[in-house]
């Protein structure tokens, strides 16, 4: 198994609603990709911050209360949410839009999991994209490891 990418990427609140692209090179002869992602922290346990952010966002979006205080409290703790996409040299190879902060994917010509499409593991430059759907902590550290199996 060859490691093609192994790095920690740091995101801050300035990255909200942006796509961070990570490039990696797939060598000739690769048949399968294994992708492991882990991001921390998942949750923001600051209750006061959470309630205040929900209330301000709610009034900005709806102009009136959408939720009771009890419903807002039940929605805590707030959590970070990232989506992950993969582009092969030929084009989009799918997106994993899932809630958990530890995700593992295997992609090959016959099968793929987690929202990705089965595809040939072409030689060339691929792109792994982190889409910052929601960041509610000062920073998120995203560890991405991509390995190729011949």
């Amino acid at each position: 198994m060859a490691t093609l990418f192994d790095r920690v990427c740091v995101l801050t609140k300035k990255d909200q609603s942006t796509h961070r692209k990570l490039y990696f090179e797939v060598p000739e002869g690769a048949k399968k990709l294994h992708i492991s992602v882990r991001y921390e922290p998942k949750y923001n346990y600051d209750e006061e911050y959470g309630l205040d952010l929900i209330e301000r966002s709610m009034l900005k979006q709806a102009g009136e209360p959408l939720m009771t205080r009890g419903e807002m409290r039940a929605a805590l703790p707030l959590d970070n949410h990232l989506s992950f996409s993969l582009d092969s040299p030929s084009g989009a190879a799918g997106t994993a839009h899932r809630g958990n902060n530890v995700q593992n994917f295997t992609i090959c010509e016959d099968s793929a999991d987690g929202g990705f499409y089965p595809c040939r593991i072409e030689q060339g430059v691929w792109t792994f994209v982190i889409s910052v759907t929601c960041i509610i902590t000062d920073k998120i550290e995203v560890a991405v490891k991509i390995e190729a199996e011949a």
């Binding site: 929900i54 966002s57 709610m58 979006q61 707030l78 949410h81 759907t133 929601c134 509610i136």
Partner: peptide
Amino acid sequence: PRRMGYPLCSGCHCD
């Protein structure tokens, strides 16, 4: 389009 979005369900509200 009028569901609560950020920070509970980012993008769920139509901006």
